[in-house]
Amino acid sequence: MESEAISNLSNLVNDDFASAVTLIYQSKGRVIITGIGKSAIIANKIVATLNSTGTPAIFMHAADAIHGDLGLILEDDVVICISKSGNTPEIKVLVPLIKSAKNKMIAITGNADSFLGQQANYVLNAYVEKEACPNNLAPTTSTTAQLVIGDALAVCLLELRGFSSRDFAKYHPGGALGKKLYLRVQDISSVNQKPKVLSSTNIKDVIVEITEKMLGVTAVVEQDKIIGIITDGDLRRMLSKADDFSQLTAKDIMSNNPKRIVADAMAIDAKKIMESNGISQLLVEEQGKYAGVIHLHDLIKEGII
């Protein structure tokens, strides 16, 4: 029932929706979103979505508004009132106060002919035929419809503002989501050890370098340029093939032209390269020179994986 109601919402979108988006986009103030009961919870979510996508928004509980919180509303603010019926007592008290302050008002309601619908400058129709609740009482389908309309507003505003993934990262610096959008390879590799050997380095010293740097790998370099890589796996394969490796050097067992990534690439790109090639480490380059190693475990630790 909820899914059918959401599908029908597209049929209810009219010029008021476009006008409401334009009003918010051109406003010099914030968006104040208010409601009561379950609609208030939906209002909180829409506020959070708008704030995270570049549209400043504040939640104001409809009941608290008439007991002092009306002071939240400034001259240039746009107010969105959410109410399924549009006729609750709190809304009937609140709406005239908002109008007297001359703030523009957008209604998200399932009843365009309600008190709220008649008083609002723009009506976003959230009509649903029936709640999913078997008694047709608990707000279920109606709150889902309100939520979808809020998301639609946020996405339209996001597109109008040209809000990019870089902007999104600015508002989401914490957690795995933010790190995927702003964390670069050099942010991780710069704190790691930097194992490296020359092509002429003997195998014993290669083993010592890999062991001491604890990344399971070492770069093979000449004049600080990467020419190869030696991993723990390369050492195991060497041991299985050779009885005497005392005369071997790094050049004898290294893999040529290893996968690598530039230091200022996004960490999420390192993840993609590792996954597509079935490897656990990537050598890092900066201006064509060896700059370190990024390991799969680093990405796990940072929450990228």
Rank of each mutant, 00 (worst) to 15 (best):
G29C: 10
T22W: 08
I66A: 13
G68I: 11
A63M: 14
I24V: 15
A57V: 04
K38L: 04
A63C: 10
A43E: 05
G68S: 08
P56R: 09
I33S: 01
A40T: 00
G35R: 02
A40E: 00
S52F: 08
R30S: 15
S19E: 09
I32H: 08
T53D: 06
G37E: 03
D69M: 09
L50C: 12
S39D: 02
L70H: 05
V21W: 05
T49C: 14
V31F: 14
G71Y: 03
T55V: 11
T53W: 04
D69K: 08
S39P: 00
A20D: 05
I41M: 04
V47Q: 07
I66K: 10
D64L: 10
H61D: 15
L70D: 14
A18E: 15
I24Y: 02
L23T: 14
Y25P: 00
N44P: 00
I41G: 01
A63P: 03
T49A: 11
K45T: 09
G71F: 12
K38T: 06
N51P: 12
T55R: 00
A20H: 02
S27P: 06
G68F: 10
S27F: 08
I42L: 10
I46S: 07
K28L: 05
P56F: 13
A62S: 15
I24F: 03
I32N: 14
S39Q: 01
A20C: 08
I46W: 09
V21G: 09
T22Q: 15
S27E: 04
S39V: 01
S39C: 04
K45P: 03
G71M: 15
V21H: 09
T53C: 11
G54I: 11
T53F: 12
A40I: 02
G54P: 05
T53M: 13
G29I: 07
Y25S: 03
I36P: 01
N44L: 06
D69V: 10
A57K: 09
T34N: 05
L23R: 06
Y25A: 07
G35A: 04
G29W: 09
Q26Y: 04
T49G: 07
L23C: 11
N51K: 13
V21N: 10
G71E: 09
Q26F: 03
N51R: 12
V31P: 04
H61R: 06
Y25R: 00
Q26S: 09
K45G: 08
H61G: 15
K28T: 10
Q26V: 03
T55H: 04
V31E: 14
S52R: 03
K28H: 08
R30V: 03
I33Q: 01
